[in-house]
Simulated scan of single mutants.
Amino acid sequence: MIKHIVMWKLKESAEGNDKKTNAEKIKLGLEALKDKIPQIQGIEVGINNNPSNAYDVVLYSEFKSFEDLDIYQNHAEHLKVAGFVGAVKEDRTCVDYEV
Rank of each mutant, 00 (worst) to 15 (best):
K3W: 03
E24F: 03
A23V: 06
M7K: 09
Q73S: 12
R92K: 14
C94R: 14
L33Y: 00
G86S: 13
G46V: 06
E62W: 13
L69D: 12
V99F: 04
K19R: 15
Y55H: 11
H78E: 00
D56Y: 09
E67S: 14
G29I: 12
A23Y: 09
A32L: 12
L69M: 10
G42M: 06
I71Q: 13
K9R: 15
N49K: 08
G16I: 11
G46A: 10
V88D: 14
K64F: 08
D18T: 11
Y55N: 06
E90N: 14
N53H: 10
K19D: 01
V95L: 13
K27Y: 07
Y72K: 06
T21A: 12
Q39H: 04
E77A: 14
V6N: 05
V57A: 06
A32G: 07
A14T: 10
A87T: 06
N49V: 12
N53S: 13
L59F: 11
I5T: 10
T93L: 15
D56E: 09
F66M: 12
G86L: 12
H4R: 08
V58R: 12
A23K: 14
K19M: 11
L28V: 11
G42F: 08
A14Y: 10
D96H: 09
G42P: 04
L69S: 05
E24H: 05
G16F: 14
E44A: 15
L59N: 03
P51M: 06
P38W: 13
Q39P: 00
N74F: 14
I47K: 03
E77I: 02
D68R: 02
N49E: 10
N74T: 05
T21K: 15
E12W: 02
G29Q: 15
I43W: 01
V95D: 00
H75C: 01
D56T: 11
I71L: 14
T93D: 02
E15H: 01
R92W: 01
E12T: 14
N74P: 00
C94S: 15
D70P: 01
Y60W: 15
I2L: 04
L28F: 08
S52E: 13
S61T: 09
P38E: 09
K36V: 03
E15F: 08
L30A: 04
L69E: 13
Y55E: 07
L33C: 02
E98N: 11
E15P: 01
K27S: 10
K27A: 08
A76C: 05
L30Q: 03
G83W: 05
D35M: 10
E90S: 15
E24C: 09
Y72D: 07
E15Q: 06
A14H: 11
A54F: 10
I40R: 00
E98G: 13
G16Q: 13
R92P: 06
I37V: 15
F66K: 15
I47N: 12
I37Q: 00
R92H: 02
E77F: 01
G86E: 03
I40P: 00
K89T: 11
G29K: 06
I37N: 00
M7L: 10
